Amino acid sequence: MYTKRLIYQHSVSKQLLKRMSDEKYKVAGAWDLDDDNVKEFKEKIKNKLIEIQDGKCAYCELPLQSRNPEIDHISPKGGKRRVLHPECTFLPLNLVYSCHNCNSTICKGQKDIVLSKNGKRNYRKWTFKIVHPYIDDPMDYFEVPISESGEKRVYPVIKRGIDREHKNKAKTTIKMFGLDGEKVLELAKEQLAVRYPEELQSIIEVISSHRPD
């Protein structure tokens, strides 16, 4: 999740995973099947993702609760008209909980972030265009500036001294999720709300009660 690597966990039973390995769940449109296996899988994955992501978007780290969260396929599954990576549809390692904005066409949407499968079935061996929430350690790509007071700032920047491959991946991640624009302001407001709740509430009340002459 941007500055924190997600720990791969899921609460899906081996029996259910085995059922989801059936070929009918590896084709375009399988995610939208109205059957009990799909419903159970989605519910268990969603609850686990909320837990391991601390209730924050896997891409921008903003709180999910008020941002219409959605389960996102990191490597997009595609649809019947544009098939992408349907074999990853029910792969827990390919699923995160995302805010609606990060998962919309404005940001990631159905953009194909798989650079190469390297001729391998092992998902962990694939090459990705963005920093992968589970496979990559974000701190290999970003660093968090320290303020004069010694506090970490709310936004990471591209890590100095990294090679071109890491730098391109970091740049693509920042650009795709708009992490150099308005979301930085949103992160700053969230941090202020946590650190200075009373002061912020006082400012809001003053602004709200102000009436121009």
Rank of each mutant, 00 (worst) to 15 (best):
T89Q: 07
H166W: 00
S13T: 15
Y134L: 05
P156F: 03
Y134D: 07
S104V: 07
E40W: 00
K152T: 05
D140N: 12
K175I: 06
A188K: 11
V96C: 12
S75D: 07
D54S: 15
P197H: 10
P76W: 10
R67H: 10
F128T: 01
K169F: 07
E43D: 06
K44H: 03
S98Q: 04
K117V: 12
K77A: 08
G29C: 09
F177T: 08
G181K: 14
E23S: 14
Y155E: 11
P156C: 06
V38P: 00
Y2K: 08
H73V: 05
H73E: 09
V131R: 01
C102I: 04
F142W: 03
L179F: 10
A28P: 09
I204N: 09
L64Y: 06
A30C: 05
M176L: 14
F128N: 03
T172E: 13
Q53E: 13
H73Y: 09
P212W: 10
Y196K: 15
R153K: 12
S147N: 10
C57S: 07
K169V: 04
L33M: 15
Y123L: 12
L84Q: 15
S75H: 10
F142K: 00
R124S: 15
N47A: 14
F41K: 01
V12T: 03
I50F: 13
K42L: 11
R121F: 11
N122H: 03
E190M: 13
P92E: 03
K24Y: 03
K46D: 05
T172D: 10
Q15K: 11
V131G: 02
R124E: 15
K77P: 02
Q65M: 04
P63W: 11
I130Y: 03
G79R: 02
G150V: 01
H10D: 15
G161C: 07
N168S: 12
Y141E: 02
D36E: 14
